[in-house]
Design a binder for these strands. Structure first.
Lengths: 204, 204
DNA sequence: TTGACTTATGACACAGTGTCATCTATAATC
DNA sequence: GATTATAGATGACACTGTGTCATAAGTCAA
């Protein structure tokens, strides 16, 4: 999290900084990004940067979290629209992600995020809110799921299902950038995998 | 790949270098590792390093690939032992991985690999051989799979199944380090997820 | 006006990278 | 055996980037 000083800045200055950061993180992935570029682009001195953030990563994950929050709020609202149908929700979310990632404003940023997706990135994208509210958020979300359509016996298995769906979804988003799939190809692959997951991998 | 000069070195010197690299990559993940430490530990001058490798990453992926090759050869031999049963093979491989990762010789190296697992790491671990032989390798492997037990209709779906199983397996290995699970807990979770995958996530 | 506190600033020390001119060893040719 | 060509070794150096810190500048309450 940014230091308190950052939050004392005017909304204007905050946004200038975030915009500069996004520009740099769209140019190159986190580990290649340079603070020098961000401050030059934001027009602030080096010392100031360290008044606001611990380091590069602090800023990056703050930015990523902001974007993730939007997606997660959307995920929840879709889940409600679809009356708790988890598969429909994941598919609609995947389609929405395809749109977001095609948007020039976000394209390169997400490309750099997904091609360098690691545990910490994924966790940030998957958990929208900071620690205190995390558990509550999780329980609120799973309460919305219609478990009657799922082949599960307990909450543990529901958790497994979410893990699997999340994993497959991220994997497919990564492939989108790696293989440079068209939206149609990407969706076709994703639907194929979701379908396999639904009906089971083993012949009965 | 290392430069030709590296392969002209004596086996002895090659191993010294690899050992030094492994030491450094066990200490910290790739992006925090320093060439300065590796050369100090291997006792070679800085200039020599660049005679042998493009950069840090070149050395890292060469090392990771070496270890991955071992695992993949093992995967294939297990697949044959299990008469092409993909689920049994993945489970046995997962168990073997638990053992490998508990081994002090490898533990910290793999911890750094898995906690910073990204697309490129995963690809290296999943494809044992360098480009020329990759496709052949893949086709040889899938020929060993007993597809009669799988709920699939074509090769495309077989590919999906492999993607899904790989993804879930890596996810669980990452969790092993993130959550610091015991081997028993890790295996229980993995078996739970594989079981769900086999029987399908949707109630029929 | 003063003191206490917060924020701003850029020079600086430090760490690490990749290159290159120069030296050394080894092999090939006459 | 002398000479030339080729490959390899070496470490000083230029460069890029990080995080810190002493100092300056605001801000606000008493």
């Amino acid at each position: 999290m940014p230091k308190p000083t950052y939050f004392h800045l005017s909304k204007d200055k905050q946004e200038t900084l975030i915009a500069a950061a996004k520009r740099e993180f769209s140019r190159v992935p986190l580990h290649e990004a340079s603070i020098a570029n961000i401050i030059k682009s934001a027009g602030i001195p080096r010392g100031s940067f360290y008044q606001y953030f611990e380091d590069k990563e602090d800023l990056f994950y703050y930015l990523l979290n902001q974007l993730a929050e939007k997606s997660n709020r959307r995920f929840i609202s879709v889940l409600m629209d679809k009356n708790g149908d988890l598969f429909e929700t994941f598919i609609a979310t995947f389609q929405f992600m395809l749109e977001v990632h095609r948007n020039p404003e976000h394209k390169n940023f997400f490309k750099n995020v997904y091609l360098n997706m690691n545990y910490k990135h994924e966790k940030t994208l998957a958990n929208n809110v900071y620690e205190e509210t995390q558990k509550t958020q999780y329980f609120n979300t799973i309460k919305l799921i219609d478990t009657s359509k799922l082949n599960i016996h307990d909450e543990q298995e529901l958790h497994h299902v979410l893990k699997i769906l999340m994993g497959v979804t991220f994997q497919n988003l990564i492939q989108l950038f790696v293989k440079e799939y068209s939206d149609e190809e990407a969706l076709e692959n994703y639907l194929g995998q979701i379908d396999l997951l639904k009906r089971g991998l083993q012949k009965n």
